[in-house]
Design a protein around this nucleic acid. Structure first.
Lengths: 207, 207
DNA sequence: AGCTTGGCCGATCGAGCGTTCGACAACAAC
DNA sequence: GTTGTTGTCGAACGCTCGATCGGCCAAGCT
């Protein structure tokens, strides 16, 4: 009577562990190339035993993406509450994204690289979460522009995609521990995006 | 006697067509998920007939990546010869890359997304080409910095990866014809990278 | 003791995969 | 007219895949 759901937390813990193993395997070999048998080997569970925790390979992929995206989103929204200055908001977004990405490299790689592997309702759900995420970014950029009174140099959606491109490209080259620290990297990207590479106001020619 | 390799150009033409079809299929369904049977259907050639033009699926993937990379590299080097100003060089690089990417979206998508699917010598070859490409970019950035006398704000390799991230992210969201024209997009990205989003010199806080 | 349930497994199925092989038609060379 | 080359094909092989199913076992309840 003490705990009326005695096994549910064990179940959740083990599921979480399986998702981590799966994310690493998918990140390493790619979703389609990695077999459920690979997972069962890495997780030390039998092939059929895995199906107790999820009902299909695609649902497994969905769970990895869904949980990562919701987590990074909720951490961001939590950190943003209370911040008013648009520039500080953007810095918070970049720091949060880069740091989360470095902490959950495998899952985030699966999230960005295997989106096309989802179909139907799974895909729709993930797409809506992604849109919600990028909308937050675009809105911050809009505020920045308004508060600084700068003109419409670059379309907001192009700027948003460029920023996410800079950040998400990290998993192609960055290895935590081998390169510069994560917080310095985030600061570099934030500065590159806001101030640019040269760091001065006017760029010479016309167009 | 007039032409001692009469069929070789036909052969090359057909191979080129097959590579295009294959790139589109791989870009659409992913390398591992797309079957050779899919290709044979799309190309209107029998399954076994395909093997006259390549000896394995992996070689096919390699040829797509190798040809794209060599082509974009040679077009870049050609355009760069004669340009002295580092800023103009960088603008040329961005224009060339973005424009090529928009013209060969499928192949470039395969190039960036399916690098991990190559193994052994194939992988080594492609990696060396990629390094040669990014080295050109890093070298231009170094020249820019020297000629402008600006300090070491952001490490050159971080800046290089950020730039390629901005550019290569294009295939995630950009659809030629639906969004802004390609040359405008390239100019936006060039400006974003050099001058940044805000477009002024100093950014407030310390760190 | 008997019964239920959560967790897990070995064996197996049907489907699809990449690749190979022998054959065949067209065409040029001798 | 024979021979060799180029391009194409249908059929098949061996293998791996995702998924299923019946059953086992330990724990908790009655």
């Amino acid at each position: 009577m003490a705990n009326h759901t005695p096994t549910s937390s064990d179940h959740e813990t083990k599921l979480e562990r399986l998702l981590t193993v799966a994310a690493e395997t998918f990140a390493d070999k790619g979703y389609h190339h990695a077999s459920i048998r690979d997972l069962s080997r890495s997780a030390g569970v039998s092939l059929s035993g895995l199906y107790y925790y999820f009902s299909s390979k695609e649902e497994l992929l969905f769970m990895i993406q869904d949980r990562s995206l919701r987590r990074v989103l909720s951490e961001l929204e939590q950190k943003l509450s209370g911040v008013d200055d648009p520039e500080q908001k953007l810095r918070t977004l970049v720091q949060n994204h880069v740091e989360f990405l470095a902490r959950n490299m495998a899952a985030m790689r699966v999230l960005t690289q295997e989106y096309d592997s989802l179909e139907g309702e799974y895909r729709t759900t993930i797409r809506e979460l992604r849109i919600r995420y990028s909308d937050i970014c675009t809105e911050i950029l809009r505020e920045m522009r308004r508060s600084l009174g700068t003109g419409d140099i670059v379309p907001l959606n192009v700027a948003t995609f460029a920023l996410f491109g800079m950040m998400n490209w990290i998993y192609v080259w960055y290895r935590p521990g081998e390169n510069i620290p994560v917080d310095r990297l985030a600061e570099h990207l934030y500065r590159l995006f806001t101030s640019g590479f040269i760091g001065r106001a006017a760029v010479t020619s016309s167009v």
